Amino acid sequence: RKWEEIAERLREEFNINPEEAREAVEKAGGNEEEARRIVKKRL
């Protein structure tokens, strides 16, 4: 699934746990840019 690939990239890029990465992607509706913004806000 594409969402899992996005979550994996976010996890590696921001050094967050898989659960946090998945939550961000879900919140963003699968949009990678939006997920990235969500993760950055949390850091």
Score class of each variant (00 low, 15 high):
E33T: 10
L10R: 00
A21W: 02
I38T: 06
K27L: 13
K27E: 15
E4P: 06
K27R: 13
A21K: 00
E23R: 11
R11Q: 13
E8D: 12
E19I: 10
N15T: 06
K27G: 07
L43F: 09
E12D: 14
R22G: 06
N17V: 08
E12A: 10
G29E: 14
R37K: 13
A35F: 00
N15Q: 14
E5K: 06
E4A: 09
W3Q: 07
E5V: 05
A28W: 00
N31V: 11
N31E: 08
A24V: 11
G29L: 13
R1N: 14
R36P: 00
R36V: 09
R11G: 11
L43T: 08
E32G: 05
E13R: 03
V25N: 01
F14L: 08
K2D: 13
K27H: 10
G29Q: 15
G29I: 09
I38D: 06
K40W: 03
E34N: 08
V39L: 10
R1I: 14
R36W: 02
V25K: 00
R37N: 14
E12R: 11
A35T: 02
R9H: 07
K41Y: 03
A24N: 01
W3K: 08
G30T: 01
G29D: 12
F14V: 02
W3P: 06
R1A: 15
R36M: 06
I16N: 02
E26V: 13
K27N: 10
E4R: 07
R9D: 06
L43K: 08
I16A: 04
K2R: 14
E19S: 10
R42I: 15
E32F: 12
E20R: 04
R36K: 09
E12K: 12
N17Q: 12
I38M: 05
E4Y: 06
E20V: 12
F14N: 03
K41A: 14
G29N: 15
E34K: 09
E34W: 04
R1W: 06
R22T: 09
R9G: 06
V25S: 02
E34A: 09
A28R: 01
V25A: 05
K27D: 10
A28K: 01
I6P: 01
E19F: 08
I6W: 02
E26Y: 07
E8W: 04
R11C: 04
E20M: 15
A21G: 03
A21E: 01
N15I: 05
E8Y: 04
L10N: 00
R36Q: 06
K40F: 03
E13P: 00
A24S: 05
G29R: 15
I16P: 02
E5R: 03
N15D: 14
G30S: 02
K40R: 12
K27P: 00
G29F: 15
K2S: 13
R36I: 10
R9S: 08
I38K: 04
K41V: 12
E13Q: 06
E32A: 08
R1E: 15
R9Q: 08
E33Y: 08
R1L: 12
E23T: 11
A28I: 01
A21M: 02
R1F: 11
L10T: 01
V25T: 06
E13M: 05
P18G: 14
A35R: 00
K40G: 09
I16L: 10
F14P: 01
R1G: 14
R9A: 09
E26D: 10
E23Q: 13
I38L: 07
R42T: 14
R42V: 12
K2Q: 13
E20Y: 09
A28Q: 01
A28M: 03
E13L: 05
R42L: 14
R1Y: 08
